[in-house]
């Protein structure tokens, strides 16, 4: 899987000292899921999103979400074309392979819900007509912490549609030193390592990674534990969460160059996949607290 390693190396060259998060983000793309990056401003959220899109050679549009953003600003408009004498659909920024949604939690709920259909079904309905989005399609959204000014929390239904939520955190001292001394690759120097067609192929390859009954048992036990309430859990995990967990674990196994999933893969992606669904947008005292407790409660040797 040389090309995937190249992608990882290239992004790590831009975003210093964050290899775990980079790996998770790439796994998220391979699993065909949408990615939510949450953190305080200035730690490289947008850089990561853009580096991902560029490295995979995806056509991307960037939308900065503000409180006055309207749904039509995302999906597009029906305009009257005077030359043709009829209405014409003018596609909005959604019609791209990657939508970089900056500061998604600054937009109104109405506008966020315009994203729901696009994220779940890969199509947009405007004035009663459905329009298919290009393939592959994914949303990479960034958001500021809830305690930041001018934000409104994402509804749970939309949170559930994000396959992963990552938070970057401050870089380690050495990485920050390298950053300050200008040793990181500039973003616009990035070239596509993988084409969009190759990405689709890789996504299919990831979906073919074997997931044997003992492993599914492990995943099911994790889901069941989240619903039991014996452990201090937040919102129970939905079947969609389980599906996303398996898909992400498969992608992780593919990144590890393995043709089957082992429990360690599940554990590696679990906090990123589950935490935002468990806390329902209200983070636990300790970062990743809910998923950590669940992992510690379910036997992992299968």
């Amino acid at each position: 899987m040389g090309s995937l390693q190249q992608v990882l190396a290239q992004i790590n060259g831009v975003l210093l000292g964050k290899s775990d998060q980079v790996r998770l983000a790439v796994a998220c793309l391979l699993a065909g899921g949408h990615l939510l990056i949450e953190d305080v401003p200035g730690v490289g959220k947008t850089t990561l999103a853009e580096a991902l899109a560029r490295s995979f050679g995806l056509a991307f549009r960037r939308v900065h979400f503000t409180s006055d953003l309207l749904p039509a600003d995302l999906s597009g408009l029906r305009l009257f074309d005077q030359q043709l004498g009829q209405f014409r659909f003018e596609p909005g920024p959604l019609f791209s392979q990657v939508l970089l949604a900056d500061e998604i939690n600054r937009a109104s709920p109405r506008c966020q819900s315009a994203l729901l259909e696009a994220m779940a079904a890969g199509r947009v309905s405007v004035d009663g007509t459905s329009h298919e989005l290009p393939k592959p399609f994914c949303v990479i959204a960034t958001q500021n912490g809830l305690d930041q000014a001018g934000t409104s929390p994402l509804p749970e239904s939309q949170l559930d549609r994000f396959a992963m939520r990552l938070s970057l955190g401050f870089p380690p001292r050495q990485a920050e030193a390298a950053l300050l001394s200008g040793k990181s690759t500039p973003l616009n120097g990035l070239t596509a390592v993988i084409t969009a067609g190759e990405l689709e192929e890789l996504q299919q390859q990831a979906s073919r990674v074997a997931c044997e009954p003992p492993l599914l048992d492990y995943v099911l036990d994790l889901l069941a534990a989240s619903r039991q309430g014996g452990v201090a859990t937040g919102t129970p995990l939905s079947p969609r969460a389980g599906w996303g967990l398996v898909a992400a674990a498969k992608a992780w196994a593919l990144l590890e160059d393995r043709s089957y999933v082992v429990p360690a893969d599940v554990q590696a992606v679990f906090p990123a996949v589950a935490e935002h669904r468990l806390d329902g947008g209200r983070p636990a005292q300790e970062p990743g607290g809910y998923s950590r407790q669940l992992l510690a409660a379910v036997e992992a040797i299968r």
Partner: peptide
């Protein structure tokens, strides 16, 4: 002894 939640590689 494996702890709960500890995977085989971790152990």
């Amino acid at each position: 002894v494996p702890q709960p939640g500890e995977t085989l590689p971790a152990f």
